[in-house]
Design a protein around this nucleic acid. Structure first.
Length: 401
RNA sequence: GGAGGGGUGGCCGAGCGGUCAAUGGCAGCAGACUGUAAAUCUGCCGGGUUUUCCCUACGUUGGUUCAAAUCCAACCCCCUCCA
């Protein structure tokens, strides 16, 4: 459908929309005035990753089109654990860990959202209202609105049951708590929209239903598609782990390289989702063919890195890339301090290119280890200043200890 | 409580006394080809070492045996059916 509100039009054009509970009504609401919407983030790790970035960018788009974003930290729900899309119960985190994760995650949002101004973003923590709930009153006020029959039909639950995997009562309650969050935000902040990934659809719908039943207020849900790469893989999962948004979890250089290595077929999609570049510029970039599309990938890497890590970090990474792939080295490359001539195997391990001597040896045997661009054997030595490469993409420099 | 089935390397999944560090697939890494792309082909893919060799590993703990992922016992966990 075509939207009249800037908000939904932008989301639609850029590929953020998978499902909406009542698109026409939400469009009308967003046209008529300021909409307050939220996305929840559980505190399961000290950093958010690429998988969360879609919804963060969506909150950004919301704010840019004049509406008010709420970032909900799931300090309370993390204590329960979301079963959505999980085969097994998530390991429970202790309170101290959750607190630490929460504190760490918060910082990310300051890069993407503005927390002051007329439609300032706000940040809340559901631990504030969940942890103090009294069981019996909660069951009587909220629990009675949930049909177990219906809950059993939601994918997050059904999947577990179908796969004959256990689902604890604790996890089973997650969707009720998430629905209650939405109700709470509706009451506290006039929030009318919850957004999230497509795996959150069931949880979100529970929230909109609850608000209608209890308060007879408008409530909408909107989900993003699961972002996959052109070869069908879930985006952002690499062998080395997730692509983290925090620089202390993943260096700027690696973050930039992740975007730079996007598949050809994904460039346009990613530019729309993960950068603020105007659509006509994106159209021009994604139309590039052959080797020229590399220019689009650089633009993507620059823009995405600038958003998350800052313009300086993006420029430094771009500079390093230009120098490195021309055969030189740049400041952003990983370094390993050595006192003098060092064996290639130790250098590879020190730079993190191999996890063990055996792996380093295999890398060398396969012809993938290079010193200053020259393939070497396993007896080779390199000293400070040497450029060490593992394959064609991973490069590092030995520094003086 | 009773009967039966099952727990294997990042994942899936074979093996069911030695020839098993464990077939195969996926994922991953490297090489060739390229554009720091895709596809394809090739090699690698527990750790330490010069291949020989040693160590760790098939839910946990013991046991039988010259020898166990494979047999036995106990325990833990999961699934199915019955009560």
């Amino acid at each position: 459908m075509t939207y009249t509100s800037d908000f939904l039009r932008v989301l639609d054009e850029r590929g953020y929309i998978h499902q909406i509970t009542d698109a026409a009504a939400l469009d009308a609401a967003a046209s008529a005035g300021v909409v307050t919407a939220y996305v929840g983030y559980d505190c399961t790790a000290p950093s958010l990753h690429i998988g969360n970035l879609v919804s963060i960018m969506m909150l950004r788009a919301l704010q840019q089109t004049g509406h008010r974003p709420i970032v909900l930290m799931g300090g309370g729900t993390t204590k329960v654990g979301d079963p959505s899309g999980k085969d097994d119960a998530r390991q429970l985190l202790d309170d101290a860990r959750i607190e630490a994760n929460k504190a760490s995650i918060r910082r990310i949002f300051e890069r993407f959202l503005s927390f002051d101004g007329p439609n300032a973003a706000i940040m809340v923590d559901n631990d504030d209202w969940l942890s103090g709930l009294a069981y019996i009153p909660f069951l009587r006020d909220i629990g009675r609105h949930f049909s177990v029959n219906r809950m059993l039909t939601f994918d997050s639950v059904k999947l577990r049951l179908d796969r004959e995997q256990p689902l604890s009562f604790l996890e089973f309650n997650y969707m009720i708590l998430q629905a209650y969050d939405f109700l709470e935000l509706s009451r506290r902040a006039g929030c009318v929209l919850q957004m999230g990934g497509s795996d959150q659809w069931g949880n979100i719908v529970n929230g909109t239903d609850l608000i209608r039943r209890v308060d007879a207020k408008p409530a909408f849900g909107l989900t993003t598609p699961l972002i996959t790469t052109a070869d069908g893989a879930k985006m952002g999962k690499t062998a080395n782990g997730a692509i983290w948004l925090h620089e202390d979890a993943l260096p700027n250089w690696d973050y930039w390289q992740f975007w730079r290595n996007t598949h050809d077929a994904d460039v346009g999609k990613f530019l729309k989702l993960f950068t603020d570049l105007p659509l006509d510029e994106i159209a021009r970039l994604e139309a590039l063919e052959g080797a020229e599309i590399n220019a689009a990938k650089v633009a993507l890497a620059n823009a995405a890195t600038a958003l998350c890590r800052g313009a300086e970090a993006a420029a430094a990474a771009a500079e390093t890339a230009a120098a490195t792939f021309a055969g030189g080295a740049g400041d952003d490359l990983p370094g390993f301090a050595v006192a003098g001539p060092t064996n290639i195997l130790d250098a590879l391990i020190g730079l993190g290119f191999a996890a063990s001597k055996g792996e380093a040896r295999r890398l060398v045997a396969g012809g993938g280890a290079r010193i200053d661009g020259e393939a070497v054997g396993e007896d080779a030595q390199a000293g400070p200043g040497a450029r060490i490469s593992a394959g064609k993409k991973r490069h590092g420099v030995l520094t003086q200890a």
